[in-house]
Every structure is written in C-alpha cells, then in structure tokens.
Design a protein around this nucleic acid. Sequence first.
DNA 1: AAACAGGCCTAAA
DNA 2: TTTAGGCCTGTT
Length: 273
Amino acid sequence: MSKIYKSFELCSKFDMDIEKTFECGQCFRWNMRDGVYYGASMDKFAKLWYEDETVMISCVAEDFSYWHNYFDLDTDYEMARKGLSINDYMTDCVETGAGIRILRQDKWEALASFIISQRNNIPRIKGIVEKLCENFGDIIDCEVDGMYSFPTAERLALCEVGDLVVIRSGYRAEYVLSGAKAVAFGDIDLEKSAEKSGEEAMADLLKIKGVGVKVANCVLLFGFHHMDAFPVDVWIKRVLDEKMPDDFNYADLGKFAGLAQQYMFYHARNLGM
DNA sequence: AAACAGGCCTAAA
DNA sequence: TTTAGGCCTGTT
C-alpha cells in the first residue's frame, strides 16, 4: 500500500447515521466489519466509524473534500426535513429515517448500478456490482484486499454482452452496455444533464435502452442530486396505496420529496410498512 | 417448487 | 395510450 490514508473528523453523529445512510438502499458498495463501514465510490476508498459523538473517516487526504461532498455535508437536513411530516405516517418515517443523508454519488456509477437494480433484491444487486468491479475495474490501493474501482463507462463500452456473463446480471447486461456506450460515445453527457431541469434530464436518461422512469428517477436523486426526484418502486407503491391519501401528490412534499421517499423506503423495509 | 425480487422492452389492442 | 407477457438469476 503506497497511498497514505489518514483519519479525519467528518461530522457529528447527529448529522449522519452511517448505518442508515449506507443500508437504506441508495448505494451498493459499502459493508460493515467490526463496527466500521468500508467501501468505495468510483476509484476512491474510505472507512467510516463512530468515535464518541463524531463520525470519523479514513481516506487519502486529497480526497477529503470529495467525501465531504459525497456525504452531502453542505446541505442542512434539519431544514430539509421541515415540511415532510404531512401526516402521521410521514411523521413516523421522518422520525425513523433521522440521520439518513442522500449521497452525491458518481453519476455514471449511479446510472449503471440502478440499471442493474431492476427486478432484483439488494443482496443480489451488491453481488453483481461487486463482480462488475472485480472483473472490469482496477485494484484500489488500500488496506482491504480485493477492493476494485467501479469500471468507467469507457472501459465497459469496449465489452460485448458475452463479456458480461461473469457478473451474472442476466438480461440487464445488454442494458448496462447500452448505458456505457451512451456515456462513452457522448450520446448523453451526464454532467450536463444533471444541470438541466428534472424533465429534461429525465428525457435524456430515458433515451438509454434499459432505463425506464423508475431507474431514471433513481439516477436523478442519487446521481444528479435532484432532491425533488421521487422514485416509485414496489415498496413505495405499497406505501402510497396503503398509507397515503388517494389524492396525495409527491410534489406536495416540495423540493425535498426525494428525501421523504428515502425515509418512506427505509421505514417500510425496516418496520414492515 | 412456484413465486417473487427496488423494471423494462416489445407487441398488440 | 394502456396492457400483457417475457426476461436472467438467485433465494425462499
């Protein structure tokens, strides 16, 4: 290991619950061992843990600002939560979800990951993403053996569908490649799309074969950090059907509707609706 | 063992 | 414009 990793104070434990943030289904490359979460974003590795009332991070010093941004530490979540408790159920969701932060993930990594997520459960998504990194990424210089970077779109664009059988993603392999090629060949510029309005960014994403409305909304929320994006999967659909009034419109939740969606998802999955 | 899992595509009405 | 059927794979 030639890179130098150092420990830093990242934020207060009251500003981020690392378990909820990593386990609420928005990311797929973080794991916990002995109370320490370790994982990666693209080609960067980090470890997070609690020390008294502080969230600590171990990372390469030059990457600290990258992680500060990744964990969205410049957003005031106390303020964002205001206005989400529009009924008793949402009040519960906001309460149990306290500490979740919406990560500012790499746009391409989010796109590829949520393409893979379709019609899959989280453990399998994580397995497929891991195999994708192991087979097409580069080894990351860190203390954990077998950590690989998320492959770039350019790297994957060189692949044929058959090359991807090793990741066991089934019919999604074709979709991953179509996304990789769209990005690598410039059919879509993720950085530029992220700056557009939600409707325009959505239209850009829907041009990719294998990206529908749900996946596009996940990319908007978790990759483009459009906090008003509201992905509706089977869990959220269940919540909307059973817990929310018939005339509910997610736009009523305002510009942080996406955060509310994540609170709902976490609550529904962990407390059985 | 049949159904289902954080959908999407295509064909047909 | 909406709806049905199929799809890779792994798990229960």
